[in-house]
């Protein structure tokens, strides 16, 4: 045991530790510090008793309160769900038009639809619903299968060309080139006519020739003036919005060997209230009819 001695200069005892003649003063801790330290010790003891604390081999002590952060999250989620259920129930029982005209319900549905869209739809349609080549832009005013609330609801619920759903939207444009229904020159002429329909730069002579071919082969679905037909999902050709490109080459390709988009039916994956919220959200993006 080392010698504890009194330091003459400060009047404080030393701890008795000595390293090469250097001694350590045993300066007392400030009282407030000591009390705070004791208080934290007591607090820690209480914490260990009340909360999960001591790790065991496969688990940990559960604590007297039986607290777990997982249970807390579950609790918070169920509380949130309970708060939402008032709106969800009303959405389930209301018509789409009723939801749209009720300010509270509309706000809730748009917000809920936005988050459901981000999870389920944004992968193809984009986070801003602006689409991409082959995936329609949902903000604009042209609709392949109709832009009313009911049309949008049907499209979301049953999808497009989705084989597993009997009520799915279905149509298929013939492959005029691949199936050798039209000659290459005829297809080129028809493409010129389509460019003319949409007031784009075109070869007038070729377009004139193509008008006949268009009438015979295309007008049944796309309309004589290129107005399209939402009942068959035939896009309008006379306007400024193009699905697979507006230039002559893209149009020729689409006539010769058309692509057909597929959209899953969501009625099987999402509950009715969510599908309704998605419908109202998509309808509110600016192009709803």
């Amino acid at each position: 045991m080392a010698d504890i001695e009194r330091d003459e200069h400060s009047g404080t005892d030393t701890t008795g530790h000595e390293w090469d003649g250097i001694k350590e003063l045993n300066t007392p801790l400030p009282k407030w510090w000591l009390w705070t330290f004791y208080a934290t010790c007591i607090w820690a003891l209480g914490y260990v008793i009340l909360y999960p604390a001591i790790p065991l081999i496969n688990s940990a002590t559960t604590g007297v309160l039986g607290y777990s952060s997982r249970a807390e999250v579950a609790q918070e989620l169920s509380e949130a769900a309970a708060e939402q259920s008032v709106y969800i129930d009303r959405i389930r029982t209301s018509s789409l038009e009723q939801i749209r005209s009720d300010q509270d319900l509309f706000t809730f549905a748009v917000a809920g639809g936005r988050s459901a869209f981000a999870v389920n739809c944004s992968q193809c349609h984009g986070s801003g619903a602006a689409g991409a080549a082959g995936y329609p832009n949902l903000n604009d005013d042209e609709w392949l299968w109709g832009g009313t609330l009911d049309d949008i609801h049907l499209t979301i619920a049953h999808g497009v060309r989705f084989d597993d759903d009997d009520e799915t939207r279905y149509s298929e444009m013939p492959a005029f080139g691949r199936d050798e229904m039209l000659e290459k020159t005829e297809i080129a002429d028809i493409a010129q006519h389509v460019l003319a329909l949409s007031n784009q730069e075109h070869d007038g002579e070729a377009a004139g020739r193509g008008a006949i071919g268009y009438s015979d082969n295309c007008a049944a679905c796309h309309g004589e003036n290129g107005a399209g037909d939402q009942f068959q999902g035939a896009p309008a050709l006379g306007d400024a919005i193009w699905f697979y490109g507006s230039d002559g080459a893209s149009i020729r390709t689409q006539i010769a060997n058309p692509k057909h988009g597929v959209m899953p039916a969501w009625a099987h994956r999402l509950d009715e209230a969510t599908v309704k919220q998605l419908t109202v959200f998509v309808h509110s993006l600016g192009g709803g009819e």
Partner: peptide, 18 residues
């Protein structure tokens, strides 16, 4: 100003911003 999409092409040739 809406940033996604920045603008929307409308069928009559108009451009819409939100």
């Amino acid at each position: 100003h809406d940033r996604n999409p920045q603008f929307v092409q409308l069928s009559d040739g108009g451009i819409r911003n939100g």
